[in-house]
Design a protein around this nucleic acid. Structure first.
Lengths: 145, 145
DNA sequence: TCTTGACCTAAAGTTAACTTTAGGTATTAA
DNA sequence: TTAATACCTAAAGTTAACTTTAGGTCAAGA
């Protein structure tokens, strides 16, 4: 596949693909006589993995280090495994942080619902904890502690 | 509370607190005669909210816009409610993307576990889909599609 | 033939969200 | 009295991850 085809398929800008290649995030991208890149299935799989690792908060330089380990062969299997184990717990932590954030947002949704019903904030703003419906209070307290 | 106390309590660098204040993310931070900031409970609540919104992917300029709405009173209640509703779905989307990423990472953990057991990648690398245990295959395919 | 489109490189520019620096005031501890 | 602390401002610097620019090659269609 050419760079334009990959760009369309994975929805990644061409400039970004070149940038990743130049940064060493892609192993073994073949070139023809004219110097034009031809991506194979392994390159596509790498790109999907890169997207996923990036999305889970990993930096490009760490991803590059991982790619270097891949190029070094079996002696780095353990390093690579450890990396994924660590990344797994990073993602799990991120998910639970987001769930906590979601609680507060849901409380805020309820808050503005009430305020809009009243036309102003005063009642809901001055509400005591025990006046707040139990399910909403749980969200709010879960966040504040 | 002084800026140093807030910094310790919320674990946010002093310079960052000053930066947020100067950017207009904090409403009504009081100053004494000497020009020293004194944060009240409402400021602390704003900071907690800022952390949460940031963490869920919102930019500082959007957060600032929200703070401006707050300062404008009841006429912006609806805008604020809509913002939280949108942010709620942003977080939900983020969580499901992370779950998808987690699937691939878990597949990779399994992959390197197998490879390490063998001492090399060849067997697991050449495995056909139907040779992969069903639970692992589900993770892998869920990602690739 | 000419121009349009897909590819290439090297290098400079951009953006967000801080972070650091340089220089200053005011209070407290020895 | 001096020296350490905690605060202040304005402005410059940093970092990651792109993105844009400028200039060039090559093949196909009108």
């Amino acid at each position: 596949m050419t760079i334009g085809e990959v760009s369309k398929k994975l929805n990644i800008p061409i400039a970004t693909l070149r940038f990743y290649d130049s940064e060493g995030l892609l192993l073994n991208v073949k070139r023809d006589e004219a110097g034009i890149r031809h991506f194979d299935e392994a390159n596509i799989a790498s790109l999907r993995l890169i997207e996923c690792l990036k999305q889970s908060g990993m930096q490009l330089k760490e991803i590059k280090e991982f790619m270097n380990w891949c190029a070094m062969g079996d002696s780095t299997l353990n390093l690579r495994k450890e990396m994924f184990i660590k990344q797994k717990s990073n993602i799990e932590a991120k998910i639970s942080e987001l769930k906590r954030a979601l609680s507060l947002i849901e409380y805020k949704c309820w808050y503005y619902d009430e305020a809009l019903r009243d036309g102003n904030e005063s009642r809901v703003k001055n509400m005591k904890l025990d006046e707040i419906p139990e399910d909403i209070r749980a969200k709010y307290c879960g966040f504040n502690s």
